[in-house]
Amino acid sequence: MTKKFKFKFNRRAFAYPYMIFMLLFIVTPLVIVLINAFLADDGSFTLKNFGEFFSNSGGGMTVLGNSLVIGLVTTLICLVIGYPVAYFLAKYHASNKILVLLFILPMWVNFLIRTLSTKAIFMALDVNLGMGTVLFGMVYNYLPYMILPLHTTLVSIDHSYIEAAEDLGADKFTVMTKTIFPLSLSGVASGITMTFIPAISTFAISEILSSSKIYLFGDAINMHFSKTTNSFGVGSVMSLVMLVLVVITNGIANLTSKDEEVKSVL
């Protein structure tokens, strides 16, 4: 007996175009990266690439450490600056949608253009390009990604929780620390995910804003694939490390918040 394969046109069919796209351009490249990581120059199976990266012979681990530190610092600064902004935007939400727009507006400009303009401004002001300017560029680029999820969460907090807290004897500060902040944790988690992951994998920002003095993980991966010397293997290993970091970050974010909204980010 032969089983007949019949193409049935149902609702599922609408998902096929993207599934094919995903297969071709997301799954396949991932598999290629995975294979590449285990290939030696001559095409034979090897673990040398991993050895080379983890032994830090090419400085890969140092770059990774730098990236994590800069990523963390960036995320922290974004959170500290972004939370109050998101809070006030949420508080005056109804009357001031334009204000919210102003904070999202930078996202509409290509980040390379933004970064190059920032560099031009720093140069004009005679500021030394280095760690400070890189951090500035990172915060500037990723702040909206922190503010948006925070704003969404803060806006959706029912005002009656705040009133209930006040009613139970909480002054304005206690309402903030005991009610609003805990209720906005899901927004904090997704804000961190949306800032930290791009921040550690970014390239170009650090290169441009430090005149190529500071290399971050993204730059390093970029370098391995664009150099004339063939080091696709090590580049692939670094890409895999990056992938693991993303998964870990998302996992932590999901642990801290049981909210559905964040889970959907993964």
């Binding site: 929780y161 009133e163 209930a164 805990p182 209720l183």
Partner: peptide, 9 residues
């Protein structure tokens, strides 16, 4: 409160 407003956290 009308809808209780119990803190979900």
């Amino acid at each position: 409160f009308q809808k209780y407003a119990l803190f979900p956290h």
